[in-house]
């Protein structure tokens, strides 16, 4: 619940003494709450620590651990290596995006359930085209198989409330 999250952010800021030198620990803890660093929250942190937002943004984009984009609970990564590309990975990409209403600009669904990304070669060319969903690897994927994976996840989510 968003109100709770805001309270937690205030707590974090207080625990770190609203000390601008503690910016990195603050960002680490805030990211744990939101899963990423929303711009408005960064501005709030900047105001609270008396730092310019550009400075906070600069720090947040310097360290690899921080992300300013929310990712879905299920991250689909489609291999964009040569073998997968030749084997039609772009068709699968399009099928996934169509199914979830995503595009190159918007890679995560608004309910933060799914993210679809491409990655450079996963090194499993024999299984091309290859897709990973979180930690699981799927080989020889077709557009139909890929969208079935989504259906399964949706069904599981519904079953588990």
């Amino acid at each position: 619940m968003a109100v709770k999250k805001f309270e937690d952010v205030c707590d974090i800021l207080d625990r770190q003494g609203r000390n601008p030198a503690r910016l990195i620990p603050v960002l680490q803890e805030v990211q744990k709450i939101y899963g990423y660093l929303p711009e408005e929250v960064l501005t709030f942190i900047a105001t609270s620590l008396d730092l310019p937002p550009a400075r906070v943004y600069g720090v947040a984009t310097f360290y690899a651990h921080f992300t300013l984009e929310p990712k879905g609970r299920y991250v689909f990564r489609l291999c964009d290596g040569t073998a997968c590309h030749v084997k039609g990975s772009s068709d699968i990409l399009n099928a996934l995006r169509d199914k979830l209403g995503l595009s190159e600009e918007q890679d995560t669904t608004s309910d933060k359930m799914f993210t679809v990304e491409t990655v450079s070669c996963l090194g499993a060319c024999g299984l091309a085209p290859v897709m990973t969903v979180n930690e699981s690897v799927y080989g020889q994927v077709t557009p139909e198989k890929a969208t079935e994976v989504i259906d399964e996840i949706v069904k599981n989510e519904e079953d588990n409330g």
Binding site: A54, Y57, F62
Partner: peptide, 10 residues
């Protein structure tokens, strides 16, 4: 002391 711009990324 405006800080409108800063470095970003790495």
């Amino acid at each position: 002391n405006v800080g409108a711009i800063d470095f970003a990324n790495r």
